[in-house]
């Protein structure tokens, strides 16, 4: 089971979503993706998109405008 990290810090809509999906497509079932970013709207949109594709959001952390979302590919 692999764990991959990507950073979307500084990127604007819709790049955080795009980069998340591009990374998820490369993973196998059970793999973990950790997405770091600071685009406020994308924090919620990424979680919804991950649910839309049938994958799981494991956790979200936010500190000082930066967020980290941990997801698992189903």
């Amino acid at each position: 089971m692999a764990e991959v990290k990507i950073s979307t810090v500084g990127l604007n809509c819709p790049k955080p979503l795009i980069e998340t999906r591009k990374a998820m497509r490369k993973l196998a079932a059970g793999d973990i993706l950790i997405i770091e970013g600071d685009h406020a709207v994308s924090k919620d949109e990424i979680q919804q998109a991950v649910k839309d594709t049938g994958d799981a959001v494991l956790g979200v952390e936010e500190t000082g405008g930066k967020w980290i979302i941990k997801v698992q590919k189903s």
């Binding site: 809509c13 819709p14 979503l17 795009i18 998340t20 999906r21 919804q48 998109a49 839309d52 594709t53 049938g54």
Partner: peptide, 11 residues
């Protein structure tokens, strides 16, 4: 293309 990529990102 923003709509296309956004929709594709949502599966």
């Amino acid at each position: 293309f923003i709509l296309a990529t956004g929709a594709a990102a949502k599966g």
